[in-house]
Design a binder for these strands. Sequence first.
DNA 1: AAAACTTATCGTAATATTGCGATAGGTATT
DNA 2: AATACCTATCGCAATATTACGATAAGTTTT
Lengths: 113, 113
Amino acid sequence: MGKSKTQSFSEESNTLAEVAKALSHPARIEILKFLLTAESCVCGDIVSTLPLSQSTVSQHLKALKDSGIVKGTISGPNVCYCINPIIWSKFGNLLSVFFNKKPQNLICEPTCC
Amino acid sequence: MGKSKTQSFSEESNTLAEVAKALSHPARIEILKFLLTAESCVCGDIVSTLPLSQSTVSQHLKALKDSGIVKGTISGPNVCYCINPIIWSKFGNLLSVFFNKKPQNLICEPTCC
DNA sequence: AAAACTTATCGTAATATTGCGATAGGTATT
DNA sequence: AATACCTATCGCAATATTACGATAAGTTTT
């Protein structure tokens, strides 16, 4: 098929996977890094920093907006994109909680791993 | 096109995006959660817990293995999958450093965002 | 050696993602 | 009103991902 069987997994797993998916393209990482430095929030400035067309960057911005991590505000003829600090820390916490679970591999010793 | 322009972005962004990509499917999250609890490391047991076919789970395990976060060891007729604790904490740190950068949005105040 | 079992890989199909140009729809300027 | 400008969306093409059944390749058991 190819369609992800989202309904078959736990809500927590789906949420984490969605967070990860929002971050799973280098262009989206670079957009977030740019917004973190707060040099500018104007869409056109974001487009200028990336080696991608305006329409492609617009799609990546939409993906970030759909995830909630970024919000866009119309500002005259421009659109200002900002990180949503609430969601930013929420996503950070989700990932932090996940990775703070330390792997034990108790069963496997000493044979494997 | 459809081909990701990986070479155009910074190495740091590519690395982060790859980490995120490894985590971007709920089945892979559930596999990692299962391995974290260390109930078992046997491939067949992982397959049993997921609502996916054996071949599909095998693909997800390959994706996790390719990212480095999981390693597989042949153990008789079975394969034992374990989290690589070095890579686990490395990935955790990468994400932690990223999300510890707090968004400021100084420029935008008070007009937007 | 044969049979049973476990897992990886191949082949295929459906769907999703990435990327771009063209264009539409908005605001500001003239 | 006409023009210039900015951004979102549409349409398309290329590639990647997800999923499954079938099969191959390995080990163990019989």
